[in-house]
């Protein structure tokens, strides 16, 4: 126990320092992209309508008048202070915008992961149990489609049929116009409304998220089904499962407890990996459903050539992705002693 606690601590330190290096690398990438842009970075940051004086002011303010290496250090210094630049489009500091929009996106992604897991794990198990029979074929078809369906098109089709034709769900946005926005605590409206003791608004916020979350969950759903099915197939063939069966333990208990427990770990890792991809997918889904999150923010910024927000979003989503991977790795080590001792 003592030894493994030490190993865990070493692992955490090692992974944290690696993440610092990766974050630095990420900053190099965003910095490079900013500087490969043809033309004047100061003009890009100032926006297309800025006057020459404003451009010059921004040039000095954002350090664009210095040589490249000095500019990079300046950029790092700004990042360390939490300064992500300014948005021409919203005319606010990007950090402020991100603080407003990021919780909405996190809420959407969490809901979406919930859908993917709640559907994906049982589907994966079912497909494995009924291998090469009708349920397996149907679920595998769903899984292959999940990868191939363009998320934005799926979103539009859901919107067309379920909101416009049947009126089951709202068209888009986060809340209806008559809903009262709960006092901001976490920034996630569902949670804030519950904390404020307003379940009706929370329910309404959830209702607004159903369609975008379904569209967003499809690729992750596909991946979870595939991984879980493959793991279950392997585990179900192991000796201990055969042994359990020979002892007369019921099939449900074998599948749901004996086998699933050992098949779930790789699925967990897949969920972590998918989290990052989902963050990227929010650009598309939020654009379809006009959902005011960081994805829509990035999409609008990209179209209006509003430069600093795009770079900031890239940086934040990259960092979020790294952080999730770190957490997943640590969870893995915590749950599986073999992994822990290897490192």
């Amino acid at each position: 126990m003592q030894r493994s606690a030490g190993a865990m601590k070493r692992l955490i330190i090692k992974r944290l320092s690696l993440m610092l290096v990766m974050l630095l690398g990420l900053a190099v990438i965003t910095f490079t992209v900013t500087n490969i842009a043809p033309g004047d970075p100061a003009r890009l940051a100032a926006g297309p309508d800025a006057s020459q004086e404003m451009v010059e002011k921004i040039r000095v303010e954002r350090g664009f008048d210095r040589p490249l290496p000095a500019r990079f250090l300046f950029y790092l210094g700004q990042l360390a202070q939490g300064d992500l630049g300014n948005s021409v489009y919203t005319s606010r500091p990007v950090a402020q915008d991100v603080a407003v929009f990021l919780p909405a996106t996190l809420e959407l992604v969490l809901f979406s992961i919930l859908i993917a897991v709640v559907l994906g794990v049982p589907f994966g198990v079912l497909a494995a149990v009924y291998q090469n029979r009708l349920p397996d074929h149907a679920i595998r078809f769903l899984s292959v489609s999940g990868v191939a369906l363009p998320m934005f098109w799926l979103g539009l089709m859901l919107q067309w049929y379920l909101s416009l034709e049947l009126g089951l769900f709202p068209l888009g946005g986060r809340l209806g116009i008559f809903d009262e926005v709960p006092p901001r605590i976490t920034g996630m409206i569902t949670f804030d409304a519950l904390l404020a003791g307003d379940p009706a608004t929370a329910g309404n916020a959830l209702k607004h998220m159903v369609l975008p979350a379904i569209a967003l969950s499809f690729p992750a759903l596909a991946a979870i089904i595939r991984v879980n099915r493959a793991e279950m197939l392997e585990v179900l063939g192991r000796d201990y499962v055969v042994n359990a069966r020979a002892q007369g333990i019921g099939p449900f208990r074998i599948v749901a407890i004996y086998a699933l427990k050992n098949a779930i770990l790789p699925t967990l890792a897949m969920i972590g990996l998918r989290f990052g991809w989902m963050l990227g997918g929010t650009v598309l889904v939020e654009s379809v459903f006009d959902f005011p999150g960081i994805g829509l923010y990035a999409a609008k910024a990209a179209i209006s050539s509003d430069f600093e927000p795009i770079m900031a979003v890239t940086l934040i989503l990259g960092a979020a992705f790294m952080l999730t991977n770190l957490l997943i790795d640590l969870a893995y080590a915590l749950l599986d002693p073999r992994v822990r001792n290897q490192i």
């Binding site: 990420l26 990438i29 990052g276 963050l279 997918g281 650009v283 795009i310 992705f321």
Partner: peptide
């Protein structure tokens, strides 16, 4: 290491950033 860093950014976002820099 460089590969890992690139793999850690959601591809679509980085692509959007690059298109943002180069123009649509």
């Amino acid at each position: 290491r460089i590969t890992d860093i690139f793999l850690s950014i959601p591809g679509l976002i980085l692509a959007i950033a690059i298109v943002g820099a180069l123009g649509p």
